[in-house]
Structure formats: C-alpha cells, structure tokens
C-alpha cells in the first residue's frame, strides 16, 4: 500500500510515552490520500487499529507515563484513536466550539494541547487513578463528563450533565 515514491512518513512526540513516537504513513498516489498510524520506537511498530491494542503494548513495555501534566494529552489521543461503544468523544475547548466540529476536522481531533475551559484534574492517591472533569462532545451531545484514567491507561467516561451555551455565560 505504501511505496517510497508515492508515500510520506511523519512522526511526532507523544508526551505520555518515553521512547516511542507516533508515526503516520500517507499514500499520495491518488486522492483522497490514505494514512495509517503506528506507535514505534523505530524498530517495533504497533498499528493503531481502532482499539487500545498499541496502548496496552506500551503498558507492557512500561512506556506509558501518565501524570497530571500528561493526562490531558493522553485523553485527547485516546479519544481520537480508540473507537468506543459510547460513540465519538471529543474534549472541547468550550461549548461554543461545538457547531464547528465535525468528523472531517482531523486537525482539531488530533490536537493534543487543547485545554478545556473549567478543566479539573485530581488524583486518587489510593488507586493512582486520575479523575478529570471537562466539557466534551459525547456522542454528538455537549456534556460535562467525569473521566477516570487508571495507571495502566484504561479510560472510563461518565456523562454528568448536558451543557448548553447558557452554562458557560
């Protein structure tokens, strides 16, 4: 699917991984272009298959480093790359952003440094879990969500209340 002449490879650092980068291979031979993403240290490549397979491999290799500084980027990444039964989840900058987000907005969905207004990050010292509260697009509905992130990268998302534009004014 990828030949050197018609393809391009790019990589970017993920703040929650230590020695692995996110790689993207894109085939430009026809339009629309076709991309496949991998997590790799340059030798081992783990394909992003729509599940958390590659993330769990990072846990096994003791690569995943979730802290209060990296948990937000991890969540943006997780919601972008792991397909969930709950549907599409996107952490929002604020509720006013909703009308401008759709599934074609790859750049926004892949942005790991968006800081939601009202973001709250706490850590449960007994379990090591992070508890994150933030506005989100939850299966197309604007919600305030509570997210539990375990030290091994498992994410559980709980909708708390529906948001409207009035909530933020």
């Amino acid at each position: 699917m990828f030949t050197p002449v018609t393809s391009e490879g790019k990589c970017t650092r993920l703040p929650f991984l230590q020695n692995f980068l996110l790689y993207r291979l894109t085939n430009f031979s026809s339009l629309p272009t076709f991309s496949m993403d991998f997590i790799s240290n340059g030798e081992d490549f783990f394909y992003m298959d729509g599940a958390d397979t590659a993330i769990q491999e990072m846990v096994r290799q003791n690569e995943l480093n979730i802290t209060s500084e990296t948990v937000l980027a991890y969540l943006h990444f997780y919601y972008c790359y792991v397909r969930l039964p709950e549907g599409e989840i996107i952490l929002l900058k604020n509720v006013a952003e909703i009308p401008y987000i759709d599934l074609y907005d790859e750049e926004r969905r892949e942005s790991l440094d968006v800081v939601p207004e009202g973001l709250q990050i706490d850590r449960d010292e007994t379990t090591g879990e992070f508890l994150v509260s933030a506005p989100a697009l939850y299966d197309s509905s604007p919600m305030e969500v509570l997210i539990r992130v375990s030290p091994d990268g498992k994410v559980s998302t709980f909708p708390k209340r529906m948001l409207t534009l009035e909530n933020i004014q």
Binding site: M36, D37, M48, G50, A51
Partner: peptide
C-alpha cells in the same frame, strides 16, 4: 482494522473497508 469506519480504493477491482477492531 483501523481507527474508524471508512473505505479505500486500492485498484480497479479491489477496495478495502476499514473497521475498528472492536
């Protein structure tokens, strides 16, 4: 398998559907 449902033209008689693993 892939990140989200999609389809890709491969050649004049072949196409791939992309479906998340889960």
């Amino acid at each position: 398998s892939g990140r989200e449902p999609d389809f890709r033209y491969v050649s004049e008689d072949t196409a791939y559907l992309v479906c998340p693993l889960n």
